[in-house]
Amino acid sequence: MRNLRLFGLAALAALALPAAAQEYSADEVVEFFSEGGAGATRGICVGTAQECAEQSAPSGFDVLVNFELDSATLTEEAKSNLTQVASALSDDRLSDAQFVLEGHTDASGTEAYNNVLAERRAQAVADFLVAQGVSIDRIEALGLGEGNPRVEDPFDPVNRRVEMKLKLQ
């Protein structure tokens, strides 16, 4: 039996920035999420359940918010990047878009603790964006814990992050 499976989030490739770059502009964020950018790509699978399960999961736009071990406190660098994100979300091309903020951790700590910490990280980003004028109705914060590491080493600090994805209506 064939089925149509729609991922609940847009399939987004990570924003391509040079490894040393740690900042981006509001225009880059808008381009990524608008019709011309990678954010317009949707993760759709038409096939059997097994065929769809074998496809890679959608990835997200890394809002370049990384965290210290056992912390949900935004750094100055993170605040600078999130200011650009907030500015981008006020752009007319993104006025109808809604977003999911996914918090992640490395594998330090218990699974239960990491789930709570991931939620706190996503909420810290959401709170900052709301303070910058983004409507709370446009963003949803989720804590996903340690289950989706960015790199193979589950303890690598790169895994302590928040990703931002388009939410399909």
Rank of each mutant, 00 (worst) to 15 (best):
T105I: 00
P154H: 03
F32G: 11
A78W: 07
N159I: 03
A40M: 12
T73Q: 08
V134H: 11
E76I: 09
G39V: 00
G145H: 01
S71G: 11
E76L: 14
Q50D: 12
R150G: 12
L4P: 06
L69F: 02
P149K: 11
A11T: 10
T110E: 10
F33Y: 00
M1F: 15
A57S: 07
P157C: 10
A57L: 15
N114R: 13
A14R: 14
T73H: 03
A16I: 12
A122R: 00
F61L: 12
Q169M: 09
A20S: 11
Q50N: 14
V158S: 00
A86N: 01
A72C: 04
E76F: 02
F99Q: 07
A131F: 06
A49K: 13
N159S: 04
E23P: 03
N159M: 00
L64F: 05
A88Q: 00
E68V: 07
D92K: 07
R93D: 07
E102T: 15
D91S: 03
D27M: 08
D27R: 14
R138D: 00
V30N: 05
F67S: 06
Q132T: 04
T48M: 02
A20V: 10
S59Y: 13
Q84W: 12
G36E: 08
D156F: 08
E31P: 05
A20T: 11
Q132W: 10
L9T: 13
E31Y: 05
D62G: 07
P154Q: 00
L9N: 13
R93K: 12
V151G: 01
A11K: 12
A16G: 04
L89I: 09
V130A: 11
R42M: 10
A118D: 04
T110C: 13
A112L: 06
F61E: 12
D27F: 05
E76C: 06
R93S: 06
I44Q: 02
V46A: 08
E152L: 06
A11R: 13
S25F: 04
E76M: 07
G133W: 13
H104P: 00
R121S: 13
A107Y: 03
L69V: 11
